[in-house]
Amino acid sequence: MTLVIALICAVISTLIWYFNPDRKKLKLSVLCFEFWGASLMWLVDAVFEFAELKEEFFTQSADAVVNDALLGLCVAVLGVVVYLIVLLISDPNGVVKQLFSKKDNE
């Protein structure tokens, strides 16, 4: 479930990156790389888990699925938070700089 949610996030962020003309300014590639990197890693993890569990891999308990889904949602939120931190540090519109500049405080 975590893999599925990460993949959905990767696809959505890639679509946003593709259709947004300000992709470079907004550093949208960070979001794409983040989710695609995690998706690939979880895919490998899932393949190893499948090799170990076989049929049980697809018949997990509802509790485990809900826990995994919750983890996936938290991962999605964390991914967006990391992107926001990168965006605020790079500050393409100079908003943060303006916020802390002397001129603005006066």
Partner: peptide
């Protein structure tokens, strides 16, 4: 590097 760091942070 971005792919690896992104994956590492979320994992």
């Amino acid at each position: 590097a971005s792919l690896l760091w992104g994956g590492v942070i979320l994992l």
